[in-house]
């Protein structure tokens, strides 16, 4: 039963949840959560296809993707801290001056 398609289905469901969170939530930290869920689903896909093809490259890509995602979270949370300091809020609809 644990075939390729089962893993891809789980990954697809995770991407759906992440997209739902990105559309619905207006809280900046929740949006970071949604981005993380999508990144995790992408990593799962990379490792699943690496296992399916019997090739190591997918796992190496997943390792690089995990490291880049960690950097992205650090910068994103720093931006949230600045915005919170300026607006006293982390609701992205309150960030009026970012609209240009």
């Amino acid at each position: 039963m644990t075939e390729l398609i089962n893993y891809i289905t789980v990954s697809l469901i995770l991407v759906g949840i992440g997209v739902y969170g990105l559309i619905v939530k207006r809280n900046a930290i929740r949006m970071i959560f949604a981005i993380e869920i999508i990144a995790n689903a992408a990593n799962l896909n990379l490792v699943v296809f690496s296992r399916y093809l019997g090739d190591i490259q997918g796992q190496i890509f997943a390792l690089f993707a995990i490291a880049i995602a960690a950097a992205e979270v650090a910068v994103g949370l720093a931006i949230i801290i600045i915005a919170y300091r300026l607006y006293k809020d982390i609701d992205v609809s309150e960030y009026k001056y970012l609209r240009g």
Binding site: E36, A62, I66
Partner: peptide, 15 residues
């Protein structure tokens, strides 16, 4: 489960 323990350990450490 996908027989890639190194990526799993990396995931636990980083995430």
């Amino acid at each position: 489960l996908l027989d890639s323990p190194f990526v799993a350990m990396f995931q636990i450490i980083v995430y």
